[in-house]
């Protein structure tokens, strides 16, 4: 087997977040409309590696994904050792807008999954004019919790094992083994308490049922795409959310679960490519 280089390139951005200096790792591939990808809770940018190596995407989109501080290759801010990480709507929104501004992205598309899909709704409600389109994967304005997050970070339970064990059932049975286990590996290596800290945002600070009425899809198109095997953000959660937003397009994805882009990249592209086609058409300069 011959060696080859993938087109993905990684760099670090130094910026300020919540009044603190941070070092943000991001990677990108492709040219065209900026497509900023937001990883799931307790995970990192590697979830989007398949999208970044798909010429059908990268020939017309500049796919960019960044690791939130505390995740992947983005370290926590200085002093982290004496604090408990807890993400909030305010902090999450700030870092997305800061990242897009610092990279001088003009009208990017933002696509987030799970908690990344949740925050997309806040962007749609309050910052729609900054984006060309928004895509929420496994996204809803609210969903019912299904486990006690205290299990995620305690000294007598292995954090990586319990995080991966909990979310393993969110992968659809049809997902190929290689992609399934890579998806789980991403959860096995998360830092202690990081998944739990993300879920503070997801569980305690992002009930967006109060703001879906503010979303104007004429300003920024909104797509909500959910896998039928996702029992965390269920098809019903997404359908209910979409029904409350005039003009939102809901796509239910068969044979996919909570991590469509990483658990079954071949299946996912069947659903995401038509959406990207539509966004590309809408973004084309009017003649």
């Amino acid at each position: 087997m011959s060696a080859s280089l993938e087109p993905i390139v990684g760099r670090y951005l130094r910026t300020t977040w919540q009044q603190r200096p941070v070092r943000i790792y991001f990677e990108e591939a492709g040219n065209g409309i900026p497509l900023v990808c937001l990883h799931t809770a307790g995970c990192d940018t590697s979830q989007f590696r398949h999208l970044m190596t798909d010429p059908a995407v990268t020939d017309r989109f500049r796919v960019i994904a960044f690791d939130l501080p505390w995740h992947g290759k983005s370290p926590p801010p200085v002093g982290w050792q004496d604090e408990d990480y807890a993400l909030s709507t305010d902090a999450y929104t700030e870092i997305i807008r800061t990242f897009c501004r610092d990279l001088e992205l003009v009208k990017p598309v933002v696509m987030g999954c799970s908690m990344g899909g949740r925050i997309v709704l806040n962007l749609a409600a309050h910052h729609a004019n900054e984006f060309a389109a928004l895509i929420g994967l496994e996204a809803a304005d609210h969903q019912t919790p299904w486990y006690d997050t205290e299990w995620l970070n305690r000294p007598d339970v292995h954090g990586g094992e319990v995080c991966a064990g909990l979310i393993s059932g969110l992968v659809a049975p049809q997902s190929p083994d290689e992609a399934r286990w890579e998806t789980l590996w991403q959860y096995l290596q998360s830092g202690p308490g990081v998944f739990k800290g993300d879920l503070h945002f997801y569980r305690a600070d992002s009930d967006y049922r109060d703001r879906t009425a503010l979303i104007d899809t004429a300003v920024c198109p909104l797509y909500l795409m959910t896998g039928e095997y996702d029992f965390s953000c269920t098809v019903e959660d997404t359908t209910r959310t979409g029904a409350a937003i005039d003009g939102a397009e809901v796509v239910i994805m068969g044979e996919l679960g909570h991590f469509p882009m990483s658990e079954n990249p071949v299946k996912f592209r069947q659903y995401i490519l038509p959406v990207l086609d539509e966004i590309e058409k809408k973004s084309a300069p009017k003649s």
Binding site: W146, Y147, L166, S168, G169, L170, A172, P173, Q174, E228, Y229, F231, V235
Partner: peptide, 10 residues
Amino acid sequence: VPAPGYHDIF
């Protein structure tokens, strides 16, 4: 191949 909702104990 269990149906959605029946595929995981959680």
